[in-house]
Simulated scan of single mutants.
Amino acid sequence: MEVAVRVLPEGLEPIASIFEDLGTGGVLIEDPTLIARYKDEPGDTQVVSALISGQGDLPVVKGYLPVDERLPERLDNLKLLLDNLFLEQRPEISTSELPETNWATAWQAYYKPVAVGEKLVVKPSWEDYCSEDGRVVIELDPGMAFGSGTHATTTLCMQLLERHLKGGEVVIDVGTGSGILAAAAAKLGASKVMAVDNDPVAVRVARENMVLNNIQEVVKVFEGNLLQVVTGLADLIVANIIADVIINLTKDVPRVLVPGGKFIASGIIKDREKDVQRALKETGFTVLEVKREGEWAAIVSILGE
C-alpha cells in the first residue's frame, strides 16, 4: 500500500519520522520546488514534465506498507500522529494499493548476464546468451531470494570456489538464497552439494533454479537453520551471510567438515574481518587466503593445519 501525505514543507521531516516509526523502512519525498529546478536541466524532459503536472503545490511524503492484518491499525496510528503535529495546514492523506507483480519483476529489465571469474557466467533465465568463450553458464531466476551474481559478496565466493574446487568434492552451501553458489559448485565439478536456508521462499527458489540448470540430482536443498539439518561430512563449506552469523557458525563447522577441509566465508564487512579471522583461529582453522572487493571481504580457511 502506498500512503501519500501532502503537507507544508515544515511537515516533511516530522512526517518522514512518523513513517519510519510505522515500519516503512524509508520514505519518498516529492517536492515540487526541487522538481521544478530540473525543468531547464539536460535530461528526460518528459519525465520532469509529468512529475510537475501531477505534483500540485505542496510536497508529498510517501511510505509503503504491506497489506496485511496490521495495515488498518498502522493507518489509524498514522492519522492520530498526524493530528498531533499541530501544523498550520492539516495534512492530506491518500492511499493506493500497488500490484505486487510490479515490485517483483520490474528489476528484471536491468539484470543481464554477468561474467564472474575466469570460468563462470550467470545468465538470467529470461535472457538469451551464447557462451562463446567456453564459460560455464549458470541459469538463474533469483526471484525474491538473495544472490543474483552482481553483489560483491557473491562474486567473491564464486571466484574462490573456482580456485579451490578441484572436482569430486562434497560441498555445503549455508544460507543458499537463490542457490547461486550451490549451482556454481555443482557446475565446477562438485559430486554432491547440500544447500540450506531458513527462508521457505529461498528454498523454493533455489530448488527451481537447480531444475533450471538440470543439476537437481547433484544439489539437494533443505530448509533449516545453518548446519542444524546437515549430516555427514563435506570437503568444502561456503557461507555468504554476515560476520556475526559466520562467527557463530564457525563453532559448528568442524562437526561436518573433513580434516583438511576448506571453509569459504563471505558477507564480511571489512571492519569485521579481524573478528571473523580470530573466531576461525580459535576454532582450529588456518586462514589461507583473504579476497577483498570494496567494503567486503571473503576468507578461505582450512581445518587443522
Rank of each mutant, 00 (worst) to 15 (best):
T250G: 12
A186R: 04
D235F: 06
T231L: 02
I237L: 15
K220F: 02
L227M: 09
A239H: 04
A243P: 01
L188R: 07
V229G: 07
R163K: 14
M194Y: 11
E223I: 06
G232S: 08
A195N: 06
G179W: 01
V229D: 01
A206D: 04
D173H: 02
A195S: 06
E208I: 00
N248Q: 15
K192S: 12
I247S: 05
I246H: 05
V229S: 05
T231E: 15
N240K: 00
H164K: 05
M210C: 06
A234C: 13
R207G: 07
A195K: 06
I172N: 09
I241V: 15
N213P: 13
I215G: 00
L181H: 03
N198A: 06
V205Y: 10
D199V: 08
L236H: 05
V245N: 07
I180E: 02
T231N: 14
D197E: 07
V196P: 02
L188M: 10
G167F: 02
E169G: 02
A206W: 09
L249S: 06
D235K: 08
A185N: 12
D173V: 04
L165A: 12
G189D: 10
I246F: 05
H164P: 04
T250E: 11
A184S: 13
I247W: 09
Q216Y: 04
V211A: 10
E169V: 04
L249A: 06
V219P: 01
L233M: 14
R163G: 13
L233S: 11
D235H: 13
H164E: 11
I172A: 15
V203E: 05
A234Q: 11
N240D: 01
A182W: 10
N240R: 07
V229Q: 03
N214G: 13
K192F: 02
V193P: 03
R207D: 00
N214M: 13
T231G: 13
D173W: 02
M210H: 00
